[in-house]
Write a protein that binds this DNA or RNA. Structure first.
Length: 218
DNA sequence: ACAAGGATCCTCT
DNA sequence: GAGGATCCTTGTT
């Protein structure tokens, strides 16, 4: 008689469903908050989103505010697509397009926590350890081995890069967005950055404050 | 065709 | 905390 198969010990929470296209067809700030705790999945690497920023069409911090260009065109399309661009000529930034077709808005994914595939992430990030691996949008792009050819990719379809439901965070933080000195004072002040409260996987923790828990109306 | 500047990261002090 | 990397995108000539 043969020996029983080795039982695989679950080292992480089970995979959750891919989010439907309709998830993205909402206001960009609402989707940004709702992206915390969701999971980016590619080739066995699973990352839990811990920090995001919202960028809206008439927001002077947003690439779309001066109108449509070849680079930002995907932001003007329907939600659920990736908008990927190169920053400072070397950093690959992943955004999630939101809203209806014709409106331009997207959420920049700034940080994530590795759930599966830590070894792959470490190999892509120079064998570093801890939050320095994935806290910052350029690091996230590197960890997922993305390039600008991914811009326009449909995140709600299986294969390639997927966005899964994950687990919602318990408490979240908010504050002004990072690295937008070129924007108007009004837009610089907007608290459109969101992060999970109880995690070390966040870039520049300064200037984040708790979001008061939503008061019950009844 | 050109110049300017950028939703950053890393290293060094 | 400062500065360089590194090159594409954009607006202007």
């Amino acid at each position: 008689m043969r020996t029983p198969p080795i039982t695989r010990v679950a080292t992480s929470t089970p995979a959750t469903p891919i989010l439907p296209e309709s998830f993205y067809a909402r206001d960009v700030v609402e989707v940004a908050r709702d992206l915390l705790g969701r999971e980016l999945v590619r080739d066995g690497v699973r990352l839990r989103i811990t920090e995001v920023e919202a960028y809206a069409e008439h927001d002077t911090a947003c690439h779309a505010h001066r109108g449509r260009t070849p680079r930002n065109a995907v932001m003007f399309g329907p939600g659920g697509r990736a908008y990927v661009y190169l920053c400072y000529g070397l950093h690959v930034m992943l955004n999630v397009v939101t809203g209806e077709d014709g409106s331009a808005a997207a959420v920049l994914v700034r940080s994530a926590e590795p759930i599966v595939g830590l070894d792959v992430v470490r190999a892509r990030r120079g064998d570093r350890d801890g939050p320095v691996l994935l806290t910052g949008p350029g690091k996230l792009g590197a960890a997922l081995a993305l390039d600008v050819a991914w811009s326009g990719h449909r995140l709600f379809e299986p294969g390639g890069l997927e966005l899964h439901a994950g687990e919602p965070p318990r408490r979240i933080l908010t504050g002004p967005r990072v690295g937008i000195d070129y924007a108007s004072a009004r837009d610089r002040r907007r608290a459109w950055r969101f992060a999970i409260a109880d995690t070390r996987w966040i870039s520049v923790p300064k200037s984040l404050r708790p979001v008061p828990s939503r008061a019950r109306t009844h």
